[in-house]
Design a protein around this nucleic acid. Structure first.
Lengths: 224, 224
DNA sequence: CGCCCGATTTTGACAATGTCAAGATGTGGC
DNA sequence: GCCACATCTTGACATTGTCAAAATCGGGCG
């Protein structure tokens, strides 16, 4: 556990001293500027002013780098999620939807990694990333459960199902917006309101039609 | 407009005779078997038993091929969408949700292309693909408008907003399920029901809280 | 019946990329 | 002052997308 040049700024040519941090930041910048295709290990190394294989001493491979960026994204994201702790109201729920989409849109390069198929589908998610991700969903779910315990939402509602479906709606809007499918930026505001109202109504009404709340496995390793 | 070997099966080594069709099918198979990373132009050509650049005489480049596959996916998809023309009921809405997710899950290799960022975000969508995609959303939107005209859903509801939000929820569930984020296959059934009920409630209740239905630009080129 | 044009396929080639192996170069602790 | 080791570099290789030029085949036209 030894640091070489803890002071940044003084480039000693060899031994960058702060390479890992710099790589993470510049990679995110590259992603934002040039998109996913613009981020290659070699381009990143060149941008940072280091040889092509230098990054491999800080990240096992490219996916490891991406996981690290995604993990940082989740840290920031959780900050946004935990904003709305005030009491529950329709305006509040709407506001939350706005916040979620706001983060996703203005940090699209992070959001794409955090919830993109690139990392998740190929099963190459870090353990750190997986935990950070689970934490954010669990946080959301716990909030719903708290509301229910406090009698603020209908008792009939299955918190897990509601959390899953509402999160899906949020995620779906982000994806369609970011990818430019069906939705255009102009309809973002009204959509957030519509979604917020729908969520609100669901929270108040709960499920009425038949079928006792199922108890099967819920979200991965976060049921119960 | 001349066909060489219209009869399939007789390989004349040169002049495959049905290459475009074969490429589309085998590419989809490759995707399903090995995932996105497994589909390379060269691997595909090898699998079909043809030289590496042969496919380029049928598709401008790789993205063109992917667009073609996605377009076929939309054709099949629209068939699924148009199933539920019966009268509107909660069971029916739930059934629709099941159908949507059912298609997406069991045709994930198509769904990923149809609604994946790979094609849409890089702005490399075919004109054919774009139209097919718009058609499917417009179809969905028109159905909601019909319901409203027939007095089956609340008059206060803004069909466009509802269509956008509910479609987002459907899409979000598919993405989270397919990518294995938060949702596991076991919770698919209950989630569909929860979502269906939420949609149903929204259709019946409409928006009640303030704000006259906005009239801004809706989905790309499908407002009005 | 045979030739020719053009559709189709192939071989050769090149640049970009991810990543490994071996060597070079510093740094702090002894 | 020296050594172990983290850090960085150069060299190399396989894979991939794709272009250019050459080879090959088939049907319509003479």
């Amino acid at each position: 556990m030894w640091r070489y040049a803890t002071r940044m700024g003084s480039k000693s040519s060899y031994h960058h001293g702060d390479l890992r941090r710099t790589l993470l930041d510049q990679a995110a910048l590259l992603l934002r500027e040039e998109g996913e295709k613009g981020l290659s290990m070699r381009a990143l190394a060149a941008r940072v002013g280091v040889s092509r294989t230098a990054p491999y001493h800080h990240f096992k491979d490219k996916e490891d780098l991406l996981c690290a960026i995604a993990t940082e994204g989740f840290r920031r994201f959780i900050g946004v999620l935990s904003l709305e702790s005030a009491d529950l109201s329709e305006t509040n729920v709407r506001q939350f939807v706005h916040s979620y989409l706001g983060f996703a849109i203005s940090n699209a390069e992070y959001y794409d990694l955090m919830f993109g198929s690139q990392l998740w589908k190929s099963g190459s998610v870090n353990e750190a990333l997986r935990q950070e991700a689970q934490a954010s969903f669990r946080f959301y779910l716990e909030q719903v459960r708290d509301w229910q315990r406090q009698g603020k939402v209908n008792n009939q509602l299955d918190p897990l199902r509601y959390a899953q479906v509402s999160w899906s709606a949020l995620h779906g809007m982000c994806r369609l917006l970011i990818d430019g499918i069906y939705l255009d930026p102009g309809s973002m505001g009204p959509m957030c309101d519509e979604a917020g109202s729908m969520f609100w109504r669901e929270l108040q009404a709960g499920r009425q039609a038949g079928k006792a709340p199922a108890s099967g496995p819920g979200a991965q390793r976060s049921s119960h």
